[in-house]
């Protein structure tokens, strides 16, 4: 390195050594002490490596099962999901494939069923734990923004669906499965107290609420949970965008008769 160059990237996650013939190519890469291409590649599952990247420690068996279950539940929320719809709009117009994922992330980042909701959801767990009285107080008196932010204030209790009627079966199935794994104190408590919380909120639990509890059981920070929630939902967005790209805009809703301009 030239002596004049002193700026570096500090990281606890990643270490590299250089190839002898090229200082710009890595000969070995270590993630939190594990040889990525000499060891993890052969011995770790993708889910375990994902956990390691975020936590810098390998998961135990139950943590691994919990993250894997959550990843399967979130991988595709179906073509009616806002984020997946965003991706499909890129698909039908023949936009770049990257734009489909950007669209899915942008739309799936928000306060309604999105990653920001999960961020707040984990904060609710941090504040309330397994105390129903504290949950009820927070639901009745949600935190207020002291100054304006680029994010709009929450318009509903995070983790619950303000447009829901009763808790959808897939949400309950996911909650039951994840709570049953055994590493999930808060998911178990959520399963036992779901209807009490729903009564206090006035509308049912959503996938975002199950995800927030799962991330909290995995001891992830709110911002880590926000990132992972975006990441884990991308497969569905990708495949639905690709499918609609093939089918084209003529076979995709334009809402021709559903749009009315009131002058």
């Amino acid at each position: 390195m030239s002596p004049a160059i002193s700026e570096t990237i500090s990281t606890k996650i990643w270490d590299e050594s250089a190839e002898p013939d090229n200082p710009f190519a890595a000969a070995s890469c270590y993630c939190s002490g594990f040889d990525v291409y000499g060891d993890l590649l052969k011995n770790a599952s993708y889910i375990d490596y994902l956990y390691l990247l975020f936590k810098l420690e390998p998961p135990n068996k139950k943590q691994s099962m919990l993250l894997e279950g959550l990843a399967i539940a979130l991988a595709n929320l179906g073509p009616r999901n806002h984020a997946v719809r965003a991706a499909m709009n890129a698909g039908v117009g023949g936009s770049t494939h990257a734009s489909a994922l950007i669209a899915a992330i942008s739309v799936g980042a928000g306060n309604l069923g999105g990653a920001r909701e999960v961020f707040y959801g984990v904060q609710y767990w941090e504040a309330c734990g397994c105390e129903i009285k504290i949950w009820r107080d927070l639901i009745a008196n949600p935190p207020q923004q002291a100054r304006l932010d680029v994010w709009l204030p929450m318009e509903h209790t995070p983790g619950f669906d303000p447009n829901g009627v009763s808790c959808p079966t897939p949400v309950i199935q996911t909650l039951e499965h994840l709570a049953d794994i055994g590493a999930a104190k808060h998911l178990k408590w959520l399963l036992d107290n779901r209807t009490a919380l729903e009564s206090a909120v006035g509308y049912p639990l959503a996938f975002s609420g199950v995800a927030a509890a799962a991330f909290y059981d995995l001891e992830l920070q709110p911002e880590q949970a926000e990132m992972l929630f975006m990441l884990l939902r991308l497969p569905g967005a990708a495949v639905h965008a690709l499918e609609q790209e093939k089918l084209g805009w003529r076979k995709y809703p334009f809402f021709s008769k559903g749009f009315k301009v009131t002058e």
Binding site: T11, D15, E16, G33, F34, N43, A44, L56
Partner: peptide, 21 residues
């Protein structure tokens, strides 16, 4: 602005670990 390997400043624990399933 290409970055050579030595521009990564690892600040974690340098102990090498073996993955166990």
């Amino acid at each position: 602005f290409p970055l050579r390997v030595s521009r990564i400043h690892f600040v974690g624990d340098r102990q090498t670990r073996q993955w166990r399933n």
